[in-house]
């Protein structure tokens, strides 16, 4: 992995993702504006933007980067291969570019979300992360600097969105290694095991006296505790250091697994234009 190949891949990838992100975010915002205007017109016959709000923009961002992390990886690998860039370089630069885009997206969320929400009657400014790690006003109530609180949420938003992107990259890496048949089987497993397999396993284990639901509940409580979520310890304030560290650690582990998968995959032919 040379510095030049990494930089070139990184720049290309950031440009590709950012373009799609801007497109998606603009579409989402315009859709929100149109829907609110139509709803208001339907209610009282006036075309206004009263009640407009985008309270969970951080969750939407995470979802978007999950999709883009998964969608773009194969393309980045192929584009890299076509230009003589190794798979490791392509993957590492994909991780780096996703982190950069996560930070940009978190900045967008931190600035735009409060602005849009201030247009609504309540002026509420609720991120999903505020539900998980405590509301900003709670920390300010106990005397924390408002700017530091916002910086903290910006960092957490960056890390959480990056984690979503890494989950996407991990999925994409698995798909990259698998054959066409393997991909279909893997997809079916992902879709059907949580939807049908778990309830069936729960029922069949319950007949044998094993309470799978309570085991899963305990497991998820421990996961939530590991991520420092507020409601687990009964406080209004979550543990940001623990949460941030765990998000970063999980993302790094996922990146490492993705790298192991990708480097052992069979080399795939680069996409040929017009083919």
């Amino acid at each position: 992995m040379t510095k030049h190949s990494f930089t070139a891949s990184y720049k290309y990838q950031v440009r590709r993702i950012i373009f799609m992100l801007i497109l998606t975010l603009c579409a989402a915002l315009v859709a929100e504006i149109i829907l609110v205007a139509i709803a208001n017109y339907g209610i009282d016959g006036r075309l206004t933007l009263e009640g407009i709000g985008f309270p969970c923009l951080d969750a939407l961002s995470g979802l978007m980067l999950f999709i883009y992390g998964a969608y773009f990886l194969a393309e980045f690998m192929n584009a890299g291969a076509a230009n003589g860039v190794s798979r490791t370089t392509s993957l590492v630069s994909a991780i780096a570019s996703n982190f950069t885009v996560s930070a940009a997206l978190a900045l967008f969320v931190s600035v735009v979300s409060p602005l849009i929400n201030s247009l609504s009657d309540s002026g509420s400014d609720i991120f999903l992360l505020e539900f998980i790690y405590g509301e900003k006003k709670f920390f300010e109530f106990y005397g924390e600097n408002a700017f530091v609180v916002r910086i903290r949420f910006f960092i957490m938003c960056t890390l959480s969105v990056f984690l979503c992107a890494m989950v996407g990259i991990l999925f994409a890496a698995a798909f990259y290694k698998l054959s066409r048949v393997g991909t279909v089987i893997f997809t079916l497993i992902i879709v059907f095991v949580p939807a049908f397999g778990y309830p069936m396993a729960s029922i069949s284990l319950a007949k044998r006296g094993i309470d799978l639901d309570s085991c899963m509940k305990k497991f998820f409580t421990e996961v939530e505790r590991a991520f420092g979520m507020a409601h687990v310890n009964g406080s209004q304030a979550g543990d940001f250091v623990r949460g941030g560290f765990m998000m970063l650690l999980t993302a790094v582990v996922m990146g490492f697994i993705a790298w192991l998968i990708v480097r052992r995959a069979n080399a795939k032919p680069a996409a040929i234009r017009g083919d």
Binding site: F139, Y142, G143, E144, N145, V148, I151, R152, I155, M156, S235, A237, F240, V241, G244
Partner: peptide
């Protein structure tokens, strides 16, 4: 970043 994540308030 580490300093910003650390709660400074007297919660």
């Amino acid at each position: 970043c580490a300093l910003c994540l650390t709660a400074c308030a007297d919660i």
